[in-house]
Write a protein that binds this DNA or RNA. Structure first.
Lengths: 159, 159
DNA sequence: GGCATATAGGATAAAAAGGTCTTACAATCT
DNA sequence: AGATTGTAAGACCTTTTTATCCTATATGCC
C-alpha cells in the first residue's frame, strides 16, 4: 500500500458504489425501519443515523423520492417514509439503480467501451460471472430483510 | 439514468478498479504478449496499443516495475519486458494489488470503516461472498492465460 | 566521448466526484 | 399567523482522481 502513494494520495476505498449510493442504501434501510414503526423520519435524523452529510443527503433523498422508493411528507412532523408494502417490494438493485444507474452491470472490467461477447476484453467472461452474481444478489436482497437485521441489533449503519 | 444528472454529471462507469488499474492490467497483458515473442516494448507502443495516455501510463509502468511485475530497460531499444517465468506466475490479483492495493477485498460495501463479521453492516455477508469470488477469480487468472487469448485474436485490448 | 533514445521522478494542471450554501417556495402543524 | 419541514435548482467550494510536463539520469550505439 505504501508505494501507491507515489501514484495516488489514496485514502479512498475503491468499491462497487458511489458514495451517494452508499448513503442512499443506508438511508433507505433506516427509513424502512422507522416506517415499520409507523414513524416519519426527517432529514436531519436520517443524516445523523447513517452518518452522512446533511445537504448531500437531501439531494439523495430527493432522488429516492423521484424513483418512488420512499415518499416525503412536508411540514412539521414531516420527513421521509416508506409504504409498508414497498418495504417488501424494494430490493437493493432498485436503490442502486436510482443513484448509480445500471453501469455496474454493463461496464467492462477493463474499462473498454466496446467490450461485449463478440469483441470481449481478456477478462470479459470472468467478470461477467462476478457481475451476474452481484446483480442477482442485489435483486434478491429486499430492504425488508436488511431493516430486520438492523432492528434485531445484528447489523449496524454507522462507523 | 437521465434523472441522475441532477445529482451527478455522470459519464463515469463506476466499477471495480481505478482507471490506472485498468490501464495496468491491459499494459501487463500486452507486455507479456510481446515478451513471449522476446520483444521489449517501449512506453509509447504500450500506450498506443492499450489506448491509454502516455504520461499516465509511464507512472503506472513505474509502479509495475517496483512491484516486480515487469522490468524496465533504459536506453535506445529499451522499454518494458517480462521474464518468461513471471508471465506464468503473475496473476491478476498481483497487478491489481500493485496499483489499487487490497482495498477491494477489505472494504465495506456500504462504505463503513468499522464493518466486520462482529459488527457487520446490513449487507456484509452478501458482499463478502461476492468479494471472495472476485478475489478467487483474480488469483486464479494468470497473465499468461490472458495474453494467450489476445495472441489467438479471441480478445481485444482497445476500444 | 557524444548523441539519441529510454525510463525515473517530482511538480503541476485538469477533470470529476463529493459536498455546501443560498434562495425561493410549498405544505402542514400549533 | 408563524414556525417548521421538505422541494427545487443553481452557484460554489473541496478533495480525489486522472493526466501532463519538465528535468534528471541511465544505456546503447556510432
Amino acid at each position: 500500500m505504501s508505494d501507491l502513494r507515489i501514484l495516488y494520495t489514496f485514502t479512498k476505498i475503491y468499491l462497487m458504489f458511489s458514495k451517494g449510493c452508499e448513503y442512499a442504501i443506508r438511508a433507505t434501510i433506516y427509513v424502512a425501519l422507522q416506517s415499520q414503526r409507523n414513524q416519519c423520519t426527517n432529514l436531519k435524523a436520517i443524516a445523523e443515523e447513517v452518518g452522512s452529510p446533511v445537504a448531500f443527503t437531501a439531494k439523495i433523498m430527493q432522488q429516492l423520492v423521484k424513483n418512488n422508493i420512499v415518499y416525503s411528507v412536508m411540514g412539521p412532523t414531516g420527513g421521509f417514509q416508506m409504504d409498508k408494502e414497498r418495504i417488501d417490494q424494494v430490493n437493493l438493485s432498485e436503490v442502486v439503480n436510482a443513484i448509480d444507474g445500471d453501469a455496474i452491470y454493463r461496464g467492462c472490467g477493463l474499462g473498454l467501451e466496446a467490450c461485449d461477447a463478440s469483441q470481449p476484453c481478456p477478462v470479459h467472461d470472468k467478470f461477467a460471472k462476478i457481475r451476474d452474481d452481484l446483480q442477482k444478489m442485489l435483486e434478491e436482497t429486499s430492504i425488508y430483510e436488511l431493516a430486520t437485521g438492523l432492528e434485531v441489533g445484528m447489523t449496524f449503519l454507522k462507523r
